[in-house]
Design a protein around this nucleic acid. Structure first.
Lengths: 236, 236
DNA sequence: CGTGTTGTTGAAGACTATCAATAGTAGTGG
DNA sequence: CCACTACTATTGATAGTCTTCAACAACACG
């Protein structure tokens, strides 16, 4: 399997396309859309609260996490530009199972709950599109768990670097060199390890000239070598 | 958190209710339903194939897994009575990301793809119900991952025992004592460890009179003690 | 009743977490 | 813009957990 298709298996985005929806169905929605800018480290919604609407991300990265009994965060997913956030729990009428927080300054569109639900009820096309999207996202999740639980932490770090590079690439198109910029702790939580172990693995990658890092910023120098860390069978 | 509500957070079932659907919408479906009995270790569908229909489970346990590069199985989920299987990939028009195989003799209902999709297109109520169900299942998944990745393997084994007891309890209602009956390898794959490590942990539980085991069969003797293994904070 | 498969146990070693100390960074206010 | 300071990243040493390899015991099935 090629790395590109592996990464594709682990991204939500690829399936959502508003253009499949009749324009009439969308016209009401368009009126309700509010454009929002949010600063870094802003919490959009909290675990346990009922959702107030959905977000479409134009720019920036948002982390989704749960807090466990020890107060540690378990980061579930990073959302990037083009991704739709928060519609699931709105539909299932359950409280949010996660907290959403910006990792950097973001540009978003917000659609209030009632407007969205009304559009959903009126539009079978929208309903079907969401069904498809949701089903696809589910598959993505199954793949993610399956892969991350079977690999060693070193492999998980390599995979996470590749995934994040792709995501940051979409946010910072202007930069010639894509830089992953997040606290080590968030990164460690995401791959399911401690900060120290993560740092040691990054140290190895640095020594092998695969990445360079200054402070929290990580630059990928050799994507090919990194992909090799995932095991040769990915290149059949 | 109580253990019962923890288990509830990790089960798909609780949300699906055909009675929300108008009878007219269902009448066509009813005609298409085929009752099926399947023997132990029968593969219902394979990873990579396109789905042919959906299954509703009446009796028995079905395991869902992916096979990795080394040929090992990663078990994703166990389906039990009352659960609906295979509708996601049918909707998303993607090949199955997993293989489904019976763990014991099963009684199932099968609905062919075309009949189901037709009913879905004609019935906004069915579409909405599936949306809700899917959203709920997604939440279940997020919880599952979050919990299993944060805990030690010993805690995961304890949690898996509780989950499986509940699931086997629904299949074998006639038995006064619920017995979990599956290969050690499947159990180990499910909690993400090796057979040997699993056996050692079970050994400890046996010595503590929490479970008894003969061959592959595991009987839970002291659910309360087992729940304590999950950490005291679950009993606030 | 035999035989291949599955479950169990032991010992060694690899990997990861934890604790503690230091170096470096990013955000703050002047 | 600079200096200060709290926070974050890094490294080392150590302890604990989990995996691997190997051998044996128990079971299930024909």
């Amino acid at each position: 399997m090629k790395v590109a298709s592996l990464i594709d298996k682990l991204h939500f985005t690829s399936n959502f396309n508003f253009e499949e929806i009749p324009k009439n169905d969308l016209s009401a929605l368009r009126k309700s859309i509010v454009n929002v800018e949010e600063k870094k480290n802003k919490i959009l919604f909290r675990e346990g609260a009922f959702p107030k609407g959905i977000y479409l991300i134009h720019k920036g990265i948002i982390k989704i996490y749960q807090v466990n009994k020890d107060g540690d965060k378990q980061i579930i997913y990073f959302y990037g530009p083009g991704e739709l956030l928060g519609y699931r729990h709105l539909i299932s009428e359950e409280p949010n199972p996660v907290t959403a927080e910006t990792l950097e300054d973001c540009e978003l569109s917000f659609i209030p709950k009632d407007d969205f639900m009304e559009a959903l009820n009126k539009s079978p096309a929208l309903s079907n599109l969401l069904l498809k999207t949701l089903s696809h996202e589910f598959t993505v999740w199954v793949n993610t768990i399956s892969i991350f639980t079977q690999q060693s932490i070193k492999e998980n770090v390599a995979l996470a670097l590749l995934l994040l590079e792709e995501k940051y690439g979409r946010t910072h198109k202007e930069d010639s060199s894509i830089v992953i910029n997040m606290p080590r702790k968030d990164f460690a939580n995401y791959v399911g390890t401690t900060v120290e172990t993560l740092v040691r693995i990054l140290r190895v990658f640095k020594d092998e000239k695969i990445i360079s890092a200054k402070g929290r910023r990580i630059l990928i120098l050799d994507k090919k070598k990194l992909a090799f860390k995932l095991g040769e069978t990915f290149f059949a």
